[in-house]
Design a protein around this nucleic acid. Structure first.
Lengths: 198, 198
DNA sequence: GTCTATACTGAGATAGAC
DNA sequence: GTCTATCTCAGTATAGAC
């Protein structure tokens, strides 16, 4: 089960390099070098660079889904689950300071390349969006669930972008704190409205 | 005065292309084609691609400064000035939906390329940051001025990133509205604290 | 499945004529 | 200041041996 195929190794290496160097700036030679295989062998597994990108996006989709499922299993409280999401900014702060958010930066790059896999990258965002939406709905924010989901996503993206530009870790922690405050007041307001209904 | 030199034309074309296609993905041929000059002539004006990038960053610095000065001249109210900043998201919505924020996306790209001009791109952010800071200070938020400036910058960045991913214009308008609400409550709170001091 | 060798392309960059 | 011609190199991709 633990035996990773060469293909898996390629996808894992490409995943990292696309994140750290960007998709376009990463060459076959870079990936082949990281996996320690020849460029020729490379083409046995993937015929084009676009194919690797799709495989990487697929891998990230699976990773992300697993992470979301994990948070769902870890806690019964939707608010705690949302906080788990917000706090990945802190958990991944070292990488975020250097390379930004993996989802946001890939989406941005593919948009500029007008790349056919743009939609695939956006699906990564959608995965978070619908999951966050579900949590907010569980908190009684039926009408505003998607709005809140997008709000949380947007603020996280902004924090990642600026943290990367200024390399500022304190800023990340501060903004995460403020997002948690926002979550508390917002869900409290939703709860009191729910109570009024009774 | 209105006579643009060839150099100016190159910088203007590069500025647009770097924004729309990204720095790396834009070739000399692209720029030369846009300006309608030969690639050879190109090198009379700029010896390397990095030199063009620096010229583009310089041009953006000047543009940005002029815009900030304009807002400063347009209104005596710091809150109105900050709103002018927030509302560029709406004014530039068409481009933002397609290509994101010019500052944020450039910074992100250069970070991945580990490009020497990274610092120059970050200065563009700093221009906004210190200007916003000044406005918040004028509103009596002495202690929180920079914190608020970064907060506004981050939220704008996040909105630009997600608007680009989902191509959603309503989302931009909604978030701009919420940022203006935030500004109103935040400055109101600062004002009342100021009053207490008297 | 993995390798070496190689073809092809586009991009950055230079030399020198006009 | 502008052009054409040309060089070099990196990157994608293929063919075919093992």
């Amino acid at each position: 089960m633990t035996a990773m195929t060469t293909r898996d190794h390629i996808v894992a290496a490409a995943n990292q390099l696309f994140y750290r160097q960007g998709y376009e700036h990463t060459s076959f030679a870079d990936i082949a070098g990281a996996v320690q295989i020849s460029r020729g062998n490379f083409y046995y597994h993937f015929r084009t660079k676009d194919e690797i990108l799709d495989a990487v996006i697929g891998a990230r989709m699976a990773e992300t889904q697993a992470m979301l499922d994990g948070w769902e299993a870890e806690s019964e409280s939707p608010a705690d689950r949302i906080r788990s999401f917000i706090k990945i900014l802190i958990a991944n702060r070292t990488d975020i300071k250097r390379f930004g958010c993996p989802v946001g930066t890939l989406t941005t790059e593919l948009a500029k390349l007008n790349h056919p896999s743009q939609a695939g990258a956006t699906e990564l965002f959608s995965l978070f969006r619908t999951w966050l939406s579900t949590q907010f709905r569980a908190l009684g924010c039926e009408k505003d669930a998607d709005r809140f989901a997008m709000h949380v996503l947007a603020r996280s993206q902004g924090v990642a972008t600026l943290a990367s530009a200024f390399g500022d870790e304190k800023f990340i922690r501060r903004e995460v704190g403020e997002m948690c405050d926002w979550l508390a007041t917002t869900t409290a307001a939703a709860a009191s409205i729910e109570q009024e209904k009774d």
